[in-house]
Nucleic acid binder design. Sequence first.
DNA 1: AAATCACTATACCGTACGGTATATTGGGGT
DNA 2: ACCCCAATATACCGTACGGTATAGTGATTT
Lengths: 188, 188
Amino acid sequence: MNNREIILESALILFASFGYDATGVQEICDQSGVTKPTLYHYFRSKRGLMEALLAENYSPYIKRLKDACEYKRDLPQNIVEILRCTFRFADSNLLFYKLQFSMRNAPARGEAYDIIKPWIKAQHEPVFTLFSEAAKDNGNMRGRAQAYTTTLLGMANAYIQQTVEEDTALNDDLAYQARQQFMYGIFS
Amino acid sequence: MNNREIILESALILFASFGYDATGVQEICDQSGVTKPTLYHYFRSKRGLMEALLAENYSPYIKRLKDACEYKRDLPQNIVEILRCTFRFADSNLLFYKLQFSMRNAPARGEAYDIIKPWIKAQHEPVFTLFSEAAKDNGNMRGRAQAYTTTLLGMANAYIQQTVEEDTALNDDLAYQARQQFMYGIFS
DNA sequence: AAATCACTATACCGTACGGTATATTGGGGT
DNA sequence: ACCCCAATATACCGTACGGTATAGTGATTT
């Protein structure tokens, strides 16, 4: 593992544990066994380091999410696939999941939120598009794509949080269960 | 309004906008038209200021929540009352609601989370006790008080977030709707 | 009138922060 | 052998932070 990867890993641990603001660049360097110029060689700034961390961990998920959102006139199938790939994303790197979750809910005008904003959009967009497409086949859904998107992603987060706290499995069965509950929410 | 109250109000605005770490004591003083010794006269430290802010805003809610959790062998009634007083809490001071929400989801070893920890417990405890009591009357619920507590409070947050984003009303009707969905989750 | 008290202003402290100027190392291409 | 360039170390910079020592001020108590 080269220094760049070591720094990214240390940064993930520290940012996730103490938060972006409260973690100093020097701490990350100490944890990595590296000096500051090395860190600043690979990442232009503290912010640049965080951006790289988000890019490396988010990119694969967003790619899979886009696939899961491709509409083939079978919305329930799309939904279960969205939930599955989101659950796997959380399951594959829980530490990163916790970090991004805290940043999402950070104050809107803070730097942490500013950094993660484009990724929130990247996640929302394909799901929103899916619901907009599906609304063309089902009039009942018209004009509610925004609400559905928020609810579905919010529900996924709720399920993930729950399994973290109760230390239960985050498997595909749970995705089907979540889908059922979500669909109930839509048609009630 | 005396200086103490002015400081608390300024602190709420700044903490909610930029976060605890990113807000400097000097900024709070400037916003309040006050110098630092004045702030430190009323509040021992930056942390003490935040603690006072939480205490003043949380206390009334926790008191009402405890009442709402008094079990009289009518769990659905308790649930709707929990939701109502939680919705009102959010509705009465949205800025504070946003602040406490971001702190709840902050990294576990950060100072912000440390400060809010006792209030999270104060909220959880009465609800947990309620579900534990109710489980004595309904065997199906046994051993799940923790899960019900997390889910109910999480669902309340989800509803609140949704109304914030869509700018819709956070009224009692919504409490009944949320209760229905929660009960569906329990018995499915 | 003297003393006391809560309260507030000026000016400052030590520290830790994000970031950098400069110099050195060491392997790859010519 | 030479240069180049990515990568790393030492030592430092200016700034902003949380917090405080000191010295009032002005109303209330005695």
